[in-house]
Computed example of a mutant assay.
Amino acid sequence: MRVLVGGGTGFVGRALTQLLRIRGHEVTHVSRQGGKDRISWEELSRSGLPPCDAVVNLAGENVLNPFRRWDDAFCREIISSRVETTKTLAKAIADADQPPRAWILITGVGYYRPSPTAEYTEDSPGGDFDFFSRLVSSWEAAALIPGSPARGVVVRSGVVLGRDGGAISRMLWPFWLGLGGPLGSGLQPFPWIHIRDLSGIVCYALESECLQGVFNGVSPSSPATSNGTFAQELGAALGRPALLPVPAWAVRAVFGAERAIMLLEGQRVVPKRTLESGYHFIFPDLSAALKDIVA
C-alpha cells in the first residue's frame, strides 16, 4: 500500500512511518520542504495528489509548547496547521482522478467537554464549548469530502505516551530528580495512549477495508486514570517519589488560562468503537506502558 502522510516528521509520524514500513507499505510525507520520500505542501497544492492508496494527516503545531505565548497569533497558527492542511489534503483527494481508498485524520479528545464524572464514547456529543472543542469540530469538518469513494476515518487521540517525544519527554527530568507530581488537584481524568497503540490503530484502520467513522484513540484503562495516578505510576516506573504537586496557578502562569484547561481538567474517554472494531491494544495497562517507555 502506498500511504501519503501529511506532517509525518514529528513524534507520532516517526512511529507510524516505522510501523507502516515494517508492515511493507510505502510512505511519502508532505512537509514544508520536499526531498527524498516527501513532497512539499506547495507542490501538493500545485500538482495535486501523487498516486497513493491512502492518506493520513498528522499535521499540527504543538499546542503545549511552553516557549510560545498563548496569544491570537499562536491561536491562528494552531488552527491553520490543522484545519488548512486538512483542507488541502481533502481538496487534493476530491480532485484526484484516482482517489485513495482511505482518508484518515488524527484529532483529539478535546472534542469532549472536561468532566470529573461523565464518560464519553465515540457517539457522545461535544465540539462546541471552548477553543479546543471548536478546533476539533472545524478540523474534522475540513476532512469531509461529500461523495468521495475514500473511506473516512477519524481517530480522536488522548495524551500520547512514548519514549522519543510527546508528554513524557518533558516530564522525565523533573521525575528523575524527585521533583515530579500531579498537576493541580491531580483528580482530573488523564486520557492516555501508548504511541505504539496510536500507530497501531491508524495502521489497523488503513488495512481494514470495512472501518470508517470516529474511533477514540485512548487506552481501555484510560477512564480510570487520573493525573495523580499517572504521576504515581510514572514515579514508580522510574523508582522515584512523585509527591510534589504543581499548583494550578503555576500551570496557568506558564500556559495561559485557556490552554491550562487541557492540563488541569480532563475527560473520561472510552474506546468503545475501537475495541468493537477488533483492534487489540498492546498496552491497555498504564503501569506496563510506562515501564516499556522508561526501560
Rank of each mutant, 00 (worst) to 15 (best):
V3S: 02
G6Q: 12
F11C: 00
V12S: 07
V12F: 04
A15F: 02
T17P: 07
H25F: 01
V27D: 06
I39P: 08
G48Q: 03
L49I: 06
P51C: 11
C52W: 11
N57Q: 07
A59V: 08
V63Y: 10
F67I: 04
R69H: 05
R82M: 09
T86H: 14
T88P: 08
K91V: 14
I93E: 15
A102H: 02
A102K: 02
L105R: 02
I106P: 04
T107F: 08
G108D: 09
G110N: 13
P114T: 13
T121L: 01
T121D: 15
E122R: 04
D123W: 12
D128V: 12
D128S: 14
F129D: 14
L135E: 10
V136C: 06
S137D: 10
E140A: 02
L144V: 15
G147K: 06
G162Q: 05
D164V: 09
D164W: 14
G165L: 07
R170V: 06
L177C: 14
P182T: 00
P189S: 01
H194T: 01
V202P: 01
E207C: 03
S208H: 13
G213A: 06
G213V: 08
V214H: 11
S221M: 13
S226A: 08
S226V: 02
S226E: 08
N227Y: 05
A237L: 05
A237G: 13
G239S: 15
A260I: 09
L263I: 00
L263F: 03
L264F: 03
G266L: 02
V270C: 13
H280D: 11
L286A: 01
V294Y: 12
A295M: 07
